[in-house]
């Protein structure tokens, strides 16, 4: 049928946001999460994943730029079966800052 005509996307914002995800620790979880961001053309600046003390669960940290689609992204993350919780932090969160020295 006919082409969709949408308002142009607003420019990505400059404020950074850190997302903290608790997820089930099994193969495929990372691909579900990365695929979700990729297929919605939402850039992920940084990603970090490690098993938690309880090895059945992992924690994933994501660094993203805030834009108007972020609310929808969080709702979509919460729909993923293996995502148990999503918490949102400001850019001041230290998790990525403390890793910076490995990237310089």
């Amino acid at each position: 049928m006919i082409e969709q005509v949408a308002e142009p996307l607003q420019q990505t914002g400059f404020a950074k946001v850190v997302l903290e995800l608790d997820v089930n620790n099994h193969a495929g979880v990372m691909s579900h999460i990365c695929n979700l961001f990729a297929r919605r053309a939402f850039n992920v600046e940084g990603i970090l994943c490690m098993p938690m003390a309880n090895p059945e669960k992992s924690r994933i940290w994501l660094l993203v730029f805030e834009d108007q689609r972020l609310e929808q992204m969080v709702l979509q993350l919460e729909k993923l079966i293996d995502v148990l919780a999503v918490r949102r932090h400001g850019a001041e969160h230290e998790v990525f800052e403390r890793l910076e020295r490995f990237f310089h």
Partner: peptide, 12 residues
């Protein structure tokens, strides 16, 4: 991998 974006959930 191919059905990640088109399923509610999938399993291997």
């Amino acid at each position: 991998g191919m059905t990640v974006p088109i399923t509610k959930h999938n399993f291997l």
